[in-house]
């Protein structure tokens, strides 16, 4: 059986762990060639995944990676890498605010811009940017992160409008609480149990579950979904249980 992504090249940022690693694995399983990135060289990438070291908080590193992306001309781009660093509004540090936006917004923008000409040439492209539920919904101490992720969604909606006539579909996936290292650094175990209880499905997401939605949007089965921010959150954002 021919795999549905045979002959397609995908770029996935932050592919050495968590959601990005699961995305790379599933793209590889569907026959795509995958180039993953991580901050340091030689991270723990899935078998068969090519990789590049890119520091998204360093514009020179991003610019150099963008030249690689221009040459690679991938069919699929997943901007997955990101940082969260909760700080209350009054405690916002300007430099940290800029750094988070550099990683979560500026770098994805630059990489999308580098990937678009190739996708237009192919007459086919799929971009999936990982946004966050902290955009459609909110929580204390999320202003820096939420602002970067809401901006990423706004950018993706507009890019979708410009790219659509060229066969390029652009969407976001907004994960809810997912069992990744990121959530472990933010919440201690007892807090994570309380988080799980607050979700209608009474559990956190596994990275693979977020990846399934991303890979669906990135594949040939998606012909008509564009400009959307798809929430994969176990019902959290839409349901209030008390």
């Amino acid at each position: 059986m021919t795999k549905s992504l045979s002959g397609k090249l995908a770029v996935v940022t932050g592919a050495s762990r968590g959601i990005g690693r699961a995305i790379a694995e599933q793209l590889l399983a569907q026959g795509a060639e995958v180039v993953g990135t991580s901050t340091k060289a030689g991270g723990d990438f899935p078998k068969g995944c090519r990789h590049e070291a890119v520091r998204l908080d360093d514009p020179a590193s991003v610019a150099s990676f963008c030249r690689t992306v221009e040459t690679l001309a991938p069919h699929i781009l997943v901007n997955n890498a990101g940082v969260a660093n909760p700080q209350t509004f009054e405690a916002i540090d300007d430099a940290e605010f800029r750094r988070v936006h550099e990683i979560n917004l500026m770098a994805p923008m630059a990489i999308c811009r580098a990937a678009l000409p190739g996708m237009k040439r192919h007459g086919w492209g799929r971009i999936v940017n990982i946004s966050s539920i902290w955009g459609p919904m909110s929580r204390v101490a999320r202003s820096t992160y939420a602002s970067s992720k809401a901006a990423l969604d706004g950018m993706s909606g507009c890019l979708a409008a410009e790219a659509a006539p060229h066969g390029v579909l652009v969407n976001c996936v907004a994960p809810g609480f997912t069992e990744t290292e990121m959530i472990k650094t933010i919440f201690p175990p007892d807090k994570r149990a309380a988080l799980a209880k607050s979700v209608p499905m009474k559990r956190l997401a596994q990275p693979e579950e977020i990846a399934k939605a991303v890979v669906w949007l990135a594949g040939v089965q998606n012909g008509y979904v564009t400009g959307q921010n798809i929430l994969v959150d176990g019902g959290l954002s839409r349901v209030r249980e008390t």
Binding site: A160, A161, P200, M201, E209, I230, D233, S237, V239
Partner: peptide, 16 residues
């Protein structure tokens, strides 16, 4: 495994 309570728009970008 984890998408629920959503109304997923499949419209070629028309609505947004």
């Amino acid at each position: 495994g984890y998408v629920t309570a959503q109304n997923i728009v499949v419209d070629g970008g028309f609505g947004r």
